[in-house]
């Protein structure tokens, strides 16, 4: 089983426009794969199909050898797939630590009765969630902001908190949707190191990104999309010199 996820002939149209058109590729176990393409190429749509926020028109997706057809969007995290969002989706009513604990939700086995009566089981899992979340924050070197609220921290940190929240459930595949968008150069460098450190832990990564520098430096393999179709796939050096990719990005 060397494919962690395999995407097979996915198609999705919105009112006659094909947002994703017969796209297939796979991510190998322990690989960092980048999905690039101009705006409107259908990258985020594909992400939303993978995570079941959108329903696909046709095609199939399998995760670790099994079809995810029968799973709902909220069940994917249990299989070991978690994601971040292009538009930051931190909860403003929760502080950073609590936001990360939200990502640990499904790992906690306490039920509502435990919660209502604040039974020992609830306390045990709360402690465990706190410990794990804090550990992840420290792993990403942002444990100094654990008590802050999302609107009190700089943008670059928000991206890292999102990543922490996606990591805390110990995923096998991490989906990052434009993690470098809105970051300055030093923040992007920090992100690059972070991505490598996550990968070192054995997590496979699929990321959408615009920042070519980041993509060329961190990914093992790149898929290029344009107008819903896959136009190229290969290692970064190959993509850099591909004519069709140049055409898509810079025109004829």
């Amino acid at each position: 089983m060397d494919k962690i996820i395999s995407i097979d002939s996915i198609t999705k149209s919105f009112g006659g426009i094909k947002a994703v058109d017969n796209v297939s590729f796979f991510v190998k176990n322990g690989e960092i794969k980048a999905l690039i393409g101009p705006n409107g190429a259908g990258k985020t749509t594909l992400f939303n199909i993978i995570t079941k926020l959108y329903t696909k028109d046709s095609g199939s997706i399998s995760f670790m050898g099994n079809s995810i057809e029968k799973y709902k969007s909220y069940e994917l995290i249990k299989l070991g797939m978690s994601r971040t969002f292009q538009n930051i989706q931190l909860i403003n009513d929760l502080n950073v630590l609590e936001n990360v604990m939200l990502g640990y939700h499904i790992n906690m086995k306490s039920n509502v009765l435990d919660a209502f009566l604040s039974l020992p089981k609830n306390k045990k899992y709360e402690k465990e969630a706190e410990k794990t979340s804090y550990y992840i924050l420290r792993f990403l070197k942002i444990d100094n902001i654990e008590k802050k609220y999302p609107n009190e921290i700089p943008f670059g940190y928000k991206r890292l908190v999102e990543i922490a929240r996606a990591l805390v459930s110990k995923p096998k595949l991490l989906l990052l949707d434009e993690p470098a968008a809105g970051l300055n150069e030093s923040e992007t460098n920090r992100l690059l190191k972070t991505i490598f450190r996550i990968w070192e832990q054995g997590v496979s990564i699929l990321l959408i990104e615009h920042d070519m520098n980041l993509v060329m430096n961190c990914s093992h393999s790149v898929v290029v999309m344009d107008e819903g179709r896959k136009i190229a796939e290969g290692p970064p050096s190959y993509i850099q010199n591909n004519d069709e990719v140049k055409r898509a990005y810079f025109g004829k």
Binding site: K72, Y74, I77, K78, I106
Partner: peptide
């Protein structure tokens, strides 16, 4: 709280 402010993201955390 996640459902209240970011319903779509809530699905991603495994919340039905």
């Amino acid at each position: 709280k996640a459902i209240k402010s970011k319903e779509n993201a809530a699905y991603a955390f495994g919340i039905n």
